[in-house]
Amino acid sequence: MQYLLFLYGDEDAFHSLPDEEQARIVGAHQAYAQALSEAGSMVAGNALAHPREGKIVRDRLGAAQAEDGPFTDAKEQLGGYYIIEADDLDEALDWASKCPAAETGTIEVRPVWRIA
């Protein structure tokens, strides 16, 4: 069973950290990804660029429009994700609790819906 871990955090707070702190957090994610891989639980994982690099696409009245964004007032933005393989939700939650992003941000754990 696959689970998607959405990593929400304060992107600006991260980018305003000193370089060595940023490097330490990146290192913790590399270690986490390695632990996942070695346990045979890693499917995919990536960090996302800052939300200001993103675009929003909406299809309105048959015409797709691209806009800058997302612009949200939320303190936390989607900053990365992991897709993991786990036997059940308990195992997925256990992995989520080990994710370095859990310490400062929020992790949303969602089962991947299998369309048969």
Binding site: Q30, A31, Y32, Q34, A35, L36, S97
Partner: peptide, 8 residues
């Protein structure tokens, strides 16, 4: 690295 990756 693996110990770090498995820490909660």
């Amino acid at each position: 690295a693996r110990a770090i990756g498995l820490s909660t």
